[in-house]
Amino acid sequence: MKVHVDMSICLLHGQCVIAAPEVFSFDDAGGLVWVTEIDDSQVADAEAASDACPEQAIILG
């Protein structure tokens, strides 16, 4: 599954980092980074992250 974050609407709430720490994280500069291609074991967490995003910025597909 592919993971995309629309950075034009992301407001760095960080809820995805909490819900799916293996997929989303902050880099040293405080920016959001993520794994763009995830395996099946990470899908549930990524979906939880997508649901938890207050800006609906996470697109899975």
Binding site: H13, V17, I18, F26
Partner: peptide, 10 residues
């Protein structure tokens, strides 16, 4: 506060 900083306190 930057989210990465709050994440540590969380």
């Amino acid at each position: 506060a930057p989210p990465a900083l709050i994440a540590r306190y969380r």
